[in-house]
Amino acid sequence: MTHRFPIKEIARQAGLGTATVDRVLNGRAHVSPQTKMRVTAAMDELKAQEAQLAARGRRLFFDFVIEAPSRFSREVKAAAEAMLPQIGTAVCRPRFLLQDIMEEDEVVAALMRIMKRGSHGVCLKARDTAKIREAVKMLANARIPVVTLVTDIGGTDRLAYVGLDNAGAGRTAAYLISLTLGEPQGMVLATRSHERFLGEEERESAFVEALASERPGLKVLAVQGGGVDFETSKLLTESMGDIRNLRAVYSMGGGNRSIIRTLEDNGIRPEVYVAHDLDRENRELILNRRLDFILHHDLQLDIRNAFNAFLGYHRLSNELLETPISTVQVLTPENVP
């Protein structure tokens, strides 16, 4: 079988071992018809990609470094992959590093590896710390643009921020809670996944200020940390002694199934529950009416804006580098898309 591609590349495309591909290409025995078809299809796909590259120009590699629960990371990966066919000026290849929890040094090490091997852009969701800010500056100095996703990193030369208007989301949560509750007394639980996520800090600050203005009789209890189920449950359990007359929950960082379960284990069911993001877990919870409102934004639009920012940086797009911030959409059990 004639070909012009390295065996390793054909094997990677076909999802087979190199030895199996070698047997197919050299017409050796003990190869099933299905395996031969997979190798042939893989070579056809490589030819199509080669033609696509010739027609569309450069091949660009973008790195996604995301610290978030897997439920959110899956949504980011799916949104990025859905956007690829819509990019007409280059062939874009995303590479993903997705982890529930990444310590500061892990993020910095990952960014330094990317700088060493090269990249056309980094889409970053990470905590706002001094070391991470310095690593972002180093990438920018190496002419590797960084776009922050959902939560920003201050004091850096990042190219753009894409994601939700976090302060607007916090004010919206305060409005929904103050509007829904009748008797304006009691406590509101406000949970964040980590104190160093700047986006969640902006949400909480705006929420607390707006709620104090609308319903001064409601006291906010802030719980920071978690984000993954076990840690969220553990931290909330430790705070149960501080909870009195809980009326509402504003969850800024996820872990809602664990929050609901922990509260119910202690005989508490809030009158109104506001959460963020329509991921799989939250979709199930709101359809079962365990959540009352979800503050949602179009993640695919955010990813599209990130790609546009990268393409503009490399002069492959006429899109403006000034990227729009996503406005919040209020979802209820009756209007879940």
Rank of each mutant, 00 (worst) to 15 (best):
285 L>N: 05
234 K>L: 10
73 S>M: 01
5 F>P: 06
227 G>I: 12
62 F>Y: 11
115 M>F: 01
130 A>K: 13
158 R>V: 04
299 L>Y: 04
294 I>M: 04
148 T>W: 14
39 V>L: 13
108 V>D: 02
227 G>K: 07
150 V>Y: 06
162 V>P: 01
242 D>E: 13
66 I>M: 12
259 I>W: 06
282 N>S: 03
172 T>V: 10
198 L>E: 14
286 I>P: 01
288 N>A: 11
169 A>Q: 14
324 P>M: 13
202 E>H: 12
68 A>K: 03
115 M>N: 09
94 P>A: 01
94 P>E: 07
86 Q>G: 15
288 N>R: 15
132 I>T: 12
262 T>M: 07
137 K>D: 15
93 R>V: 13
291 L>M: 00
129 T>Q: 07
110 A>E: 04
142 A>Y: 09
174 A>C: 05
34 Q>P: 01
132 I>V: 15
22 D>S: 14
42 A>M: 13
54 A>K: 15
314 H>P: 04
296 H>I: 01
136 V>M: 08
85 P>E: 05
285 L>V: 01
234 K>P: 02
279 D>Y: 01
330 V>G: 15
133 R>D: 06
276 H>R: 09
245 N>I: 03
185 Q>P: 00
266 N>A: 09
138 M>Y: 05
161 Y>T: 11
11 A>M: 08
278 L>S: 06
78 A>V: 03
167 A>L: 07
156 T>A: 11
317 S>Q: 11
76 V>I: 14
162 V>I: 15
208 V>H: 10
66 I>S: 05
285 L>Q: 02
282 N>H: 11
58 R>I: 03
301 L>M: 12
251 S>E: 08
287 L>S: 03
207 F>Q: 08
66 I>P: 06
112 M>Y: 02
46 L>D: 13
207 F>L: 08
316 L>V: 12
7 I>D: 10
209 E>L: 05
249 V>L: 05
163 G>Y: 05
285 L>A: 05
144 I>R: 01
177 I>E: 12
320 L>Q: 09
277 D>W: 01
212 A>M: 08
240 M>I: 09
39 V>N: 10
279 D>M: 00
103 E>Q: 15
277 D>V: 04
79 A>W: 03
267 G>K: 02
187 M>N: 15
5 F>C: 08
266 N>P: 00
232 T>A: 02
42 A>K: 14
183 E>R: 13
42 A>L: 12
40 T>N: 11
243 I>D: 09
252 M>G: 09
101 I>N: 15
105 D>C: 00
64 F>W: 08
161 Y>S: 12
115 M>T: 00
